[in-house]
């Protein structure tokens, strides 16, 4: 992507811009991670309490059978189960910033089960697929910007969004299942 971009800029004579936007991109990245630090600390702190208090174990026991269908390789009552359930529910509620730390927590739990620390396991890929599909019940941010743009009915998109994200989630899960079978056979 970087090489392609610079190549095109060279042809169109925008080379000067490249230096500028490369640097501003790097700065943005640091800003994003600094913003993340605060939320990460908050949520991982809260999650630690939930873990020690046994809340996560309770959740994974209740939701276990359902989640196990999508994540067959996670052992029963492993903390990863609970973390995955919490990530998915936060995603559904549209909690935005809170989702990332929770998802990372789930990934860390999954990493403990990973025999090859460099390479993603099928379970990680499934979780990622679910998160990138981003199934959300109420897209609060979008309703807010629609309201700001003077929409008469800012919430009118909830219906189509629900249908679309269901379709997306289902197709992503199917693709994930297909890829998993193909890649494990090799």
């Amino acid at each position: 992507m970087l090489v392609g971009g610079i190549f095109v800029a060279g042809i169109t004579g925008k080379t000067q811009l490249i230096t500028q936007c490369a640097i501003s991109g790097a700065q943005q990245a640091v800003e994003v991670s600094f913003k993340l630090i605060g939320v990460m600390c908050l949520w991982l702190g809260i999650m630690k309490i939930a873990e020690e208090a046994g809340i996560i174990r309770i959740i994974s026991r209740i939701m276990g059978p359902f989640v196990r269908f999508f994540f067959p390789d996670i052992p029963r009552s492993h903390p990863a189960m609970g973390a995955i359930v919490i990530t998915i529910s936060a995603n559904m509620l549209g909690l935005g910033n809170a989702v990332t730390p929770l998802g990372i927590k789930a990934m860390q739990e999954l990493q403990e089960l990973n025999p090859n620390k460099d390479t993603a396991t099928p379970a990680m890929c499934t979780l990622l697929a679910l998160c990138t599909a981003g199934f959300t019940l109420v897209p609060a941010t979008i309703i807010a910007i629609r309201y700001a743009a003077g929409s008469l009915n800012p919430a009118s998109i909830i219906g189509p969004t629900l249908i679309t994200s269901s379709v997306t989630t289902i197709s992503v899960l199917c693709a994930d299942f297909l890829c998993r079978t193909i890649f494990t056979r090799r």
């Binding site: 800029a9 990245a29 994003v32």
Partner: peptide, 15 residues
């Protein structure tokens, strides 16, 4: 940093 620099360049360059 790696990802955002790449995306930024990709966008601004006209690619």
């Amino acid at each position: 940093v790696a990802m955002m620099v790449a995306i930024n360049v990709f966008r601004t360059s006209g690619a």
